[in-house]
Simulated scan of single mutants.
Amino acid sequence: MSFFNKIFSREKPNLEMRPLYEAIVREGRQLAWYEEGQVPDSLDGRFDMIAAIFSMVMIRLEKDQQLEQKVAWLTEIFISDMDRQLRQIGIGDMIVGKHVGRMMGALGGRVGAYREALQGGADLEDAILRNIFRGEKPDDSALTFIAQRLSAYHTALQAHDSNKIVTGNLPENGSIAQ
């Protein structure tokens, strides 16, 4: 394929990562996060929960350097979806880029906070309180539920084969110890 064909091609190589992104969104929309975990069922709450699951997957995929391009494609899909969601709720063209930029900054911060909590010894509940509940403390049982479930999800992802993850085969909720 020539240089110009590559530039102007309608093929979208990032579509290979679409099943993984859809699996992340499905996990982030599981009712237990909102019912037992008391995550606010709002645009912000859903973004925060999807960003948490996205972060868990990103932390896992970082272990495999040969997946860097696929991780970049997954991030492109996330950005595209956030752009589309903002436009659907009526955010205008003039400011949608600023909103997406802030969301990407928030996502990067969340990945760092969860990485530090899960691998660096920081307090996971503190990261959850800041990044999912935005400082509004829920019931202790809800905070514990989210922390235990995200920790278990992280552990399950670590044991999961990278190739399965890339195809959207994520650990099942029922297989994650509570």
Rank of each mutant, 00 (worst) to 15 (best):
R87P: 00
K98S: 10
V111E: 02
L124R: 01
L118S: 04
Q158K: 13
V111D: 02
A106T: 11
R60E: 11
D41W: 12
A52H: 02
A117L: 05
R87S: 09
D161W: 06
M82A: 07
L43A: 11
S80H: 12
D139S: 14
Q85R: 14
D41T: 11
Q85W: 09
K137H: 12
M56C: 15
L61Q: 15
I146N: 00
D83R: 13
F145S: 00
A117Q: 04
M104W: 03
Q158I: 09
S55L: 07
R84A: 15
S80R: 13
R134V: 02
K98P: 05
I95Y: 07
L67S: 10
A106Q: 08
A51G: 11
R84I: 08
M56E: 08
H99G: 01
K70W: 14
D139R: 14
L124P: 02
M58T: 14
L67W: 09
R46V: 15
L124E: 00
I79K: 13
L67D: 08
G92C: 14
Y153N: 04
Q119P: 09
P138E: 07
M56S: 10
F145Y: 15
A52D: 01
A147P: 07
G90Y: 08
Q69P: 04
F47S: 05
D123H: 06
D48C: 08
N131Q: 04
Q88K: 14
A147K: 03
V96W: 03
M49A: 09
L43Y: 15
E116Y: 02
R102I: 04
Q65R: 10
Q69C: 06
M58Y: 11
A72N: 15
T144Y: 01
I128M: 03
E62P: 09
V100R: 06
A127P: 02
M56K: 00
D64S: 10
L61M: 15
V57R: 05
G109L: 00
S151K: 10
F133Q: 00
E68D: 05
D126Q: 09
I59Y: 05
Q85T: 14
D41E: 11
A142P: 10
A127D: 00
A152P: 03
G112P: 01
R110P: 06
V111I: 15
L129V: 00
M49C: 07
